[in-house]
């Protein structure tokens, strides 16, 4: 104890205190996350093949191979479709939900907490739930169709329907967080603003498009970034739900990356796909954040 007191009185030690406090966090984050990303990007320039000894540097050769593969191009396109529809549907739903939560007075905390429930459910469990909901034999939707005398739809056997189911499941998974972000945006607004505008004769739609949306633009930006991130990297929900199938109808980039890396053991080409996902993520978030910058 005596030495500690002496030490802490020492000015140089005092200066070191904040660095010492943040060091463990830096070690974990840089050592695991940053290192992995840089290592992964590095891997994409080497030939890493278990069958061939050594790891020669081959420049952009892996990129050339991957980019010329039809399977990659298809999964790239599918990722864009998947993200676009997930994010659009997600924004519509979360905006509607946030508005409802903003207006509800009774038990508002309860409803808010309730909204977050899907956030607590794992991707795998989400996949199982939606597989069960849309199954051809045991799914609620098909059983209702059958009860009504309609034709069954084999959702998971049809490429377009399977993509639809995957998008719905993913949206279910990403909406809660976005709802809370938008709700926080609404709650930060001055309620008198609506009163004044309504008294002045502005219609509901005018209030929405001219007042509410411009004012919560930054929040819309954040929730779009968050939802597109989650969707580009979505893997937990798709793999157990469809496995990327039928055929490769739901094989988005993250699933393709897993297959190429762990089924074919083409690690360095998987690293190429990882780099592509990373670049897409950054590009999309820069885009959203610049479009949805606050007015001030």
């Amino acid at each position: 104890m005596g030495t500690t007191t002496a030490l802490s009185a020492h000015p140089r030690f005092k200066k070191a205190v904040p660095y010492l406090l943040i060091t463990p966090a830096l070690v974990f984050v840089i050592g695991i996350l940053a290192y992995s990303v840089l290592y992964g990007i590095g891997m994409s320039f080497f030939r890493i093949d278990l069958a061939i000894p050594g790891r020669p540097f081959i420049g952009l050769e892996n990129y050339r191979v991957v980019f010329s593969e039809e399977r990659f191009i298809n999964s790239f396109r599918r990722s864009l479709v998947f993200v676009f529809f997930s994010v659009t549907l997600g924004l519509l739903l979360s905006f509607g939900f946030a508005n409802a939560l903003y207006r509800v007075k009774k038990m508002s905390a309860g409803f808010r907490g309730f909204t977050l429930v899907p956030y607590l459910v794992s991707g795998i469990a989400t996949a199982i739930m939606f597989r069960f909901l849309f199954s051809g034999t045991v799914g609620f939707i098909n059983q209702m169709l059958m009860a009504l005398g309609a034709e069954r739809i084999l959702f998971l056997g049809n490429p377009n329907w399977a993509l639809f189911v995957v998008i719905v499941a993913n949206t279910w998974f990403i909406v809660p967080f976005s709802t809370l972000v938008l709700l926080a945006g609404l709650q930060a607004l001055d309620p008198d603003l609506f009163e004044v505008a309504t008294v002045e004769g502005a219609s509901k739609l005018t209030v929405l498009f001219r007042i509410i949306i411009p004012l919560i633009k930054p929040m819309i930006g954040i929730s779009l970034v968050w939802m597109s991130f989650a969707s580009f990297n979505m893997f937990d929900v798709i793999l157990p739900l469809t496995g990327g199938g039928p055929g490769r109808a739901t094989e988005v980039l993250a699933v393709y990356m897993y297959r190429i890396g762990f089924d074919f053991l083409r690690y360095s080409q998987g690293a190429v796909v990882m780099t592509v996902i990373l670049v897409l993520n950054i590009a999309v978030s820069v885009f959203f954040l610049s479009v949805f910058r606050g007015e001030d």
Binding site: L33, A34, V37, G40, Y258, G270, A271, M274
Partner: peptide
């Protein structure tokens, strides 16, 4: 330093699996 800790939040988690496996 704060940015160094916060930025990795945006790293796609699933995409870490290949380098992490190697590491």
């Amino acid at each position: 330093l704060l940015l160094l800790i916060l930025i990795p939040r945006i790293i796609p988690r699933a995409s870490l699996i290949i380098p992490l496996f190697q590491m």
